[in-house]
Computed example of a mutant assay.
Amino acid sequence: MDATDDLTIVQLGLEDAAGGLAISSEAQWNQNEADWNFFLSKAIVFGVRAPDRRLIATAALMPYSASDAWISMVLVTASWRRRGLATRLVDECLSSANRLGVTCWLDATPAGAAVYGPLGFTPTIQLQRLRLDRPPVVTGPPLPQGKLGDLVTCDISAMGFDRRALLEELAGRLGSRLVSNGDALALVRYGRTARHIGPVFADCPAHALKMVRDIAASESGPLLIDAVASQQAFVKGLTEAGWTVERPFQRMRFGRATTRGDEPPFAVAGPEYG
């Protein structure tokens, strides 16, 4: 019997935020305590504990609508990897999704995509995570505040389903900024190691790039953005401005597409949220 066969999958609660944060921090992910609290209060989060009761693996199913849900926070602490725990947890998420009757989506690292493909996930769009460590400091007028209703409308058009509760949560966090200049709209929020820009909506690449440039000029620390790879002019403009590519992500879907989005955004809310 494998050493993990007798480890039970359990559903986690808010009291597990510190344990989850420890695993995602070990993996050098950008999630912070607010992210974990949101998942543990709004999603179905599964976990596995070691014999000493320490949390060693997690996976979450976040229902966004009656038809679509996101799988994320698939994490295994280093000393317990490659023993099948991630596959077991994803299977548990898929079983829950089947009971709910929802289509599942996720954003996978290259290693994760190799695992999810055999489970029946099919690739859709690709993402590129980029980082800017030293934004240029420029003194200028503050960016105008954007409207939450506009953000929700743009997001529904891009995703094909309503994520209002998520966007309200992210925009309402301490330190978050929802900014607009009339041609583009973007959300900026805190992460564990860097501020995250996204989603970003605009009517053309030039306006999206100007928005990101203006945000970067008003920030003092490192920044992350998860750009949609098919927005080639946008990604090229970011790299020319000093952003460096950290890693790719592959968006994948399990089941048939029940909804269809229009033109994708220039950047997404993050691989944990879609």
Rank of each mutant, 00 (worst) to 15 (best):
L94R: 12
S95P: 05
S96E: 15
A97Y: 00
A97V: 02
N98Y: 04
R99E: 10
R99I: 00
R99L: 08
L100Y: 07
V102Y: 05
C104Q: 13
C104V: 15
W105V: 12
L106H: 09
T109K: 11
A111Y: 03
G112P: 03
G112H: 06
A113K: 05
A114H: 03
A114L: 07
V115K: 02
Y116F: 15
Y116H: 12
P118E: 04
F121L: 13
F121N: 09
T122M: 14
T122P: 12
P123F: 06
T124M: 09
L127N: 01
Q128N: 13
R129K: 00
L130Y: 07
R131P: 00
R131L: 07
L132V: 08
L132C: 10
D133G: 11
R134K: 07
P135N: 13
P135K: 11
V138F: 07
T139D: 15
P141M: 12
P141E: 15
P141A: 15
P142I: 08
L143H: 06
L143V: 09
K147A: 13
L148H: 09
L148A: 04
G149S: 01
G149R: 00
D150K: 05
V152A: 12
S157T: 12
S157P: 11
A158V: 11
M159D: 13
G160P: 07
F161R: 01
F161Q: 04
F161G: 07
R163A: 00
R163L: 04
R163V: 00
R163W: 01
A165G: 11
A165M: 14
L166R: 15
E169R: 11
E169Y: 14
A171G: 05
G172C: 06
G172D: 08
R173I: 13
L174M: 11
L174Q: 10
G175M: 15
G175W: 14
S176N: 13
S176Y: 13
S176A: 15
R177Q: 15
L178K: 05
V179A: 00
D183S: 14
L185P: 04
A186D: 06
A186N: 01
L187D: 08
V188C: 02
V188H: 03
Y190P: 00
Y190M: 12
G191H: 09
R192N: 15
T193L: 12
A194W: 00
R195E: 11
R195K: 15
H196Q: 12
H196K: 08
I197V: 14
I197P: 07
G198R: 02
P199I: 03
V200C: 04
